[in-house]
Structures are given as structure tokens and as C-alpha cells.
Amino acid sequence: MTAARAGNGTGNRDVRGRGFPSRVALSAMEGWIDAAAVPLPPRAVALADLAPALAEGAVLAEPVTAPGDWPPADRAARDGVAVASSDTLGAGSYNPVPLPGAVPVAAGEPMPPGTDAVLPVECIQADGPFIEALGSAAPGEGVEGRGEGVRAGTVLLPAGHRLRPQDLGLFAALGIAALPIGARPRVRIVLAGGPRSGPETLGAMLSALVARDGGVVELVGPLPADRAGLAAAYAAPGADLLISAGRTGVGEDDVAPLALADAGELALHGVALRPGDSAALGMAGTVPALLLPGEPMACWTAYELLAGRAVRRLAGRDSALPHPAVVAVTARKLVSEIGCTELYRVRRTVEGMVEPAASPHKPGLAGAVQADGFVLIPAESEGVPVGATVTLRCFDGTSL
């Protein structure tokens, strides 16, 4: 296939030396990704083998339902003696009451027949071989009743939930032997072009981002800016998703979009996003493909807002941004222009407000490293004035 099949007329245009006639809205790119990146079939993992998967951020592919009540029978909730509560009526420190049917129990042990409460050790005393109550107990006191923790048939956790160690503990107690876990998509990262695309920078950054989002990385390149060579790398079998970085702009050697058209389909090229406006997407054979700019900050932005969404969807995860959102107030104006979604790298001031760490027009990752997070300004906005409330997306490791 040598000609692209465009989704909206932007995919089949060679923009080299001409520029983009128009750019697609970010929401249109997201919609295309949601339609193309269908979650992969889940994998069943034995509970005993799930510890490494937790470190990978494993998520449930299906809801998990309790197979039975927990606890399965009434049990002691504390150390003490199991008693019939009626036998303790009137007991006190000045009126010890003999407990001929008391049975010592430890927390977690089943309640003996004929008992319905547990007196703590401080409320009993031994008188030779006999036990006496120094206080009364109400029915059920000190007891965890059957099904009090979980009732049979209860949905314990929904699909998409990121598993935690405590989850595995409960599943083990309930006798759940295996769980349906989201797949780990095979993501081929192709570094397109020579040193000016920053292949070392891009390879290290993108590999870490894909791993964070649940993918398994195959890193290819850097490859020369050769249309046929890139098309062959894009079309090679063995991947669930293709991400290519570099050679997506308007220069003569920006051949990645043409190579994707040769490998399958260039659906959309050019997005109303700053930085990252030369991103593209399409199909490499039957595999969704995303082309990211070679400039590192633009590459990072296009990954987070586009490619990362595809990785997370294939892995059965929440496709939304994985950055915690908090409300913040601007200490300085965030200047923007209508028609383009802009990602502002911001830092917190000592007063807890946010200010720009770098403009969306400024390249390089230094501003992102020095920032605490970012603010997305929608395409219809002319900017954010001082004192306005914004949503701050916090970078990993940033204190909320």
C-alpha cells in the first residue's frame, strides 16, 4: 500500500516543505485511539505468582466476586474467653460471677458451641481452676460474625482496579486461586532518524513510560530517515502497538508519516496540541500506530496524551491520565491562544500556588524535570488569569 487512507483529509497530505493545512482536535485523536486500541484478552495468573505483577501495576481485567462468606463462621475478634453473654449478667469487680462454661480463645479462632461473646482478659480472674467474670458482655461483643467482612456474591473489586498487597491477602483467605489480569501489550518503539531526534533520550524516556502503563517494550533503532526502512520496521510482525518517535514534521527528511502510509494507513497527521503538534496516528497492518515528534518535550506530551492512552487501553487499564489531579490557584497568568490545547509545565510556589516552569513553546525536558506537574489549557481558552482555579496534574513523586 503506497497511499494513505485519510480519516478526515489530513492523513494523505505530504506536509514536507508545505506545513499543515489544518490540525485535528485532540478529542478527535482520542476518539480514534479509543476505537482502534481494543483491550487485549486478559491473562489468568495464579495468586501465588502475582507478586511480580503487582510491581508492574497489574489491574483486574474482570470484577472479582466473593465465592463465600468471610469469615465463614462466627469467630473471636480478640483474645479472651468465649462465654454465653447471659452468664455474665451482673458481673463486676465487686461482684465476680463464676463462668463454668468459659473457653479460652485467641483472636481468629471459631466460637465454641453455646457461646456468643468474648470477654477480654482484663475482665476475668482465675480462682483456682475456675474463671470468674469481672464485667458483663453483650451478645456479639468481641465476636466477628459470619459474613461480617464479606457476603457471598459481593463484588469485591471492579474491573480496572490496580491490585494491592492487601487485596491478595483477602483473595487468599477466600480461597480464590487465580485472577484475570489485564494483558501486557507488546509495544514496539521505533526511533526514527539520527542524533537530532535525540534517540538516546527518547528511547530511555519512552521505554519507562510504556512500562509504567503496562506494556512490554521492544526498542528498535535508531534507524535512518529512510522511508522504506521505516515502513519495514513498522510492518514487522510481533507487536500489539507501534510507537515511532522522530521525523514527523515538515522537513524534507520527515518521512515517518509516509512510511506509515506505506506500512498500512496514515489516518490523522497534525494535532491541535502544543507541544506535540506534529503527532500522527494510523495502522501498521492491523496494529494501531502512533507517530510522535522527535523533540523530547513534544514527544513526552504526545505520548502522555495520545500514545499512553493506547497502551493503557490495550492493557485493560483506565485510559485517563495517570497523574493525580488536585485543585490549585495560579500565581501568574498562563498565556494561551484559541484553537490549540496547551500543556503548561508548572511548579508550586512557597504559598502553594502554581506558576509556569516553562512555556508550551519552550523545547527540552529541563522544564518538565523542574516542574511539579502540568496544567492543560483547552483549545477554546485564551489563557488562565492570575488567581484562577486550575486542575494540576502532579508528576510522579510530587507531593500532593
Rank of each mutant, 00 (worst) to 15 (best):
V250C: 15
A6Q: 04
Y94S: 14
T301Q: 15
R162L: 02
D254Q: 12
P112D: 05
P100F: 13
P224C: 11
P199Y: 04
G383I: 09
V97I: 14
V143T: 08
L60S: 01
S399R: 14
D116M: 12
M29W: 13
P224M: 11
G135A: 13
P322C: 13
R247W: 13
L266T: 00
E141H: 06
A183K: 02
F374V: 10
P222S: 15
A51C: 01
G308S: 07
S381R: 02
L47D: 01
P363L: 11
G153M: 03
L266P: 13
T2W: 05
L266S: 13
F171Y: 08
V354S: 06
V311R: 12
E148I: 11
Q166P: 03
H161W: 14
P222N: 09
R345W: 10
A117L: 10
A331D: 05
V210R: 09
D213F: 11
L163T: 05
S85Q: 05
V143A: 09
A239I: 05
P360E: 09
G92S: 15
A3H: 09
G221P: 01
A302G: 08
F374P: 02
A320C: 01
A310P: 00
G153R: 04
G193A: 13
P104Q: 08
L170E: 03
G308L: 09
D69Q: 10
R332D: 15
E141G: 01
R227Y: 14
L54P: 02
S319C: 13
V216Q: 15
L134K: 11
G221D: 10
L40P: 08
A192R: 01
G316V: 05
P113Q: 01
G214S: 07
G246F: 04
A37D: 03
R16M: 06
A315G: 12
P96C: 02
G114K: 06
M283Y: 09
S93W: 13
G160Y: 00
A231T: 02
P104Y: 01
V97K: 11
A267N: 15
L268P: 15
A138T: 05
M283D: 07
A84F: 11
L241C: 04
A48V: 14
L343Q: 12
N12R: 10
G68I: 10
G68K: 12
A328R: 02
G270M: 15
R274P: 01
E304H: 12
Y303I: 10
M353F: 01
A192T: 04
F130Y: 07
V384H: 04
V118F: 05
V287I: 09
L40V: 09
V311P: 05
P356C: 05
G352Q: 15
R5T: 04
M1P: 14
E62N: 07
N95P: 03
R146K: 14
G383Q: 06
